[in-house]
Design a protein around this nucleic acid. Structure first.
Lengths: 336, 336
DNA sequence: GTGAAAGCGCTAACAA
DNA sequence: TTGTTAGCGCTTTCAC
């Protein structure tokens, strides 16, 4: 494969000029630049990332670390980040931490330190002080999604407000007995998302002057099956059955819809159900939900990171992630 | 950060010996190796991948190319591949082709050619001759999943047999009127998977002496909603309604289950339904299905690829991917 | 605006 | 088994 000297020769310039022309760093006249670009493309020349990386210290590669990939949310965030990076000429190197502690340690003490990446995006990961320091010592910027991480700029959803909005949608419709699915202590990893959403639910009840009742809280594991089981519990007894349910994820909300059907209840006539995510199944189940936008989140993280790397980019001014109530057919006024 | 000379100095050897001790290439006495490894870990030394890559021509990084990431199947395959690679000390660089033609071209003419990766895994991608040649010219091995690609070893599911097995399960139970959801011409990309599965369905019918009926074929787009609509069509008319349905994916099969319920039919009493995939929702819906194992597929591809790169590994002897009938509660004998 | 030349931090002949 | 040394293919300083 053609090297930089062949391009230089063909364009009648030095290798230094080729480098400048192709990377956009330093002064090159327009005429020369075009000549070089022409020569490069005729030869099918592509800069060697290893040589360029060694000489410059920049790899044009970003590490993306996820706790899990085979889940709608994470794969969508990664997809959004990868697309944004590719557009800017960056590669995306993926680290999936599903393998457990030893794997996580090796990623943070070996893989991320071998200078393959210029910077790191950490998705829904509570990084330790040591993990952050190791990266900062190497001068690798770090951006988080799903925060907060000390000393790391982090994009985060305001889960309290998300839950409050979802629940207020129900109180606004006139519901007074509202159940909540989520918030199991056991699953309270990841920045206490389940707990925070439960608190948002409670805040909305308080806002509406409704007392919080322990019996209306059903812990679940954020799966459809978990939501199904929890909803059966909530909806099973005919007396003082809730007329509305706020589930902390769409999967659980859909499980709740299916549980309601199995109990002979009609949604939303007998019970209104609202979720969080707006995942790919939500439209099919006609689910009212609080949408979040994972692809866009990945892209925002990229913009934030590239700004730290000194690239020209539209740095997000606000680190709070957007969300939005999407009203579909699973919620309505309660029956008289 | 510590460099190789510091390690060499601390261990009292030359940099060449450090390189050999840490990479495992070339002779080093056990005593020396341990001394070097000790020095390296005390200093927190990690080999620079750019320097090592430039000098050796090996990057210890594999490119994984997918048409789409935010789907259970693809994210699971990538997860399996990434885990297997990480275990072997390799990084995984991800290329998602969702962006369209221009993006695909840039990936194959720029990104993959900049020598960031040693080899490439292509998932469910019909590569062009040019794309394959560009990689082979650079001496980058290539392995496919979901094959066949000319000149490229490819792991593939025998879709004809998968569909035949699913359908035979129904004929074996005594079903004679069996509908099929899938096989829309429009979606017949990706190595004709939909068409092949339809042919397997037809083959099983022929095996059982059952004539193929056009009215029992319902095209759909492999989504839950598509399966729902198709099943409504198939099950809507009470006379000569099929007693069994083979859907070419679990998502469609689940859509069919929900359609049956909405029509007042009980699964499997009134209609048996079988899918393909064994995805994360299948157990919840108690769906009988043909399981495939995407994580394992990613791992197999890695083993195949590492063998081509000359690494010690258990090279898969058989390029056909395993599948398996999983009988759950959505299939039963037809009613008398 | 462009060229000459000195590295970037390793690996791999080759020699010992 | 280990050390010496010449690159790997670029980028960047400095001089012009």
């Amino acid at each position: 494969m053609a090297g930089i000297d062949e391009v230089a020769q063909r364009a009648g310039v030095s290798t230094a000029t080729v480098s400048r022309a192709l990377s956009g760093r330093g002064y090159v006249s327009d005429a020369t630049r075009e000549r070089v670009q022409g020569a490069a493309s005729e030869l099918g020349y592509v800069v060697s990332s290893t040589a360029s990386g060694l000489a410059s210290g920049r790899t044009r590669n970003i590490g993306v670390v996820v706790p899990l990939l085979s889940h709608w949310y994470f794969s969508s965030v990664v997809e959004g980040a990868e697309t944004a990076l590719l557009r800017r000429g960056y590669d995306t190197t993926l680290y999936n931490l599903t393998g457990g502690d030893a794997e996580r340690r090796s990623v943070f003490t070996q893989f991320l330190l071998r200078k393959r990446v210029d910077a790191v995006i950490a998705i829904n990961l509570e990084l330790t002080v040591d993990e952050v320091r190791a990266l900062h010592d190497l001068n690798k910027p770090l951006v988080g999604i799903g925060g907060p991480i000390p000393d790391v700029p982090t994009l985060a959803l305001d889960d309290l407000e998300v839950a409050r909005l979802a629940t207020s949608h129900l109180t606004g419709l006139g519901h007074r007995r509202i159940g909540h699915i989520g918030g199991e202590r056991e699953f309270d990893v990841d920045f206490h998302l389940p707990t925070t959403r439960r608190q948002g639910y409670e805040a909305a009840l308080v806002d509406a002057g409704i007392p919080v009742e322990g019996s209306l809280l059903q812990p679940a594991d954020f799966t459809m099956n978990g939501g199904y089981i929890a909803a059966k519990q909530l909806l099973g007894s005919p007396r003082d059955r809730p007329t509305g349910i706020f589930a902390a994820s769409d999967d659980m909300a859909i499980g709740a819809i299916l549980a309601a059907r199995d109990l002979g209840l009609v949604v939303p006539r007998d019970v209104s159900i609202v979720g969080v995510d707006d995942n790919q199944l939500a439209p099919f189940f006609n689910l009212t939900t609080i949408a979040q936008f994972p692809r866009n989140q990945g892209e925002m993280a990229v913009n934030l990171l590239l700004a730290e790397l000194g690239e020209e980019t539209t740095k997000p001014s606000d680190l709070s992630l957007p969300f939005e109530l999407v009203v579909r057919g699973s919620t309505a006024r309660p029956q008289e």
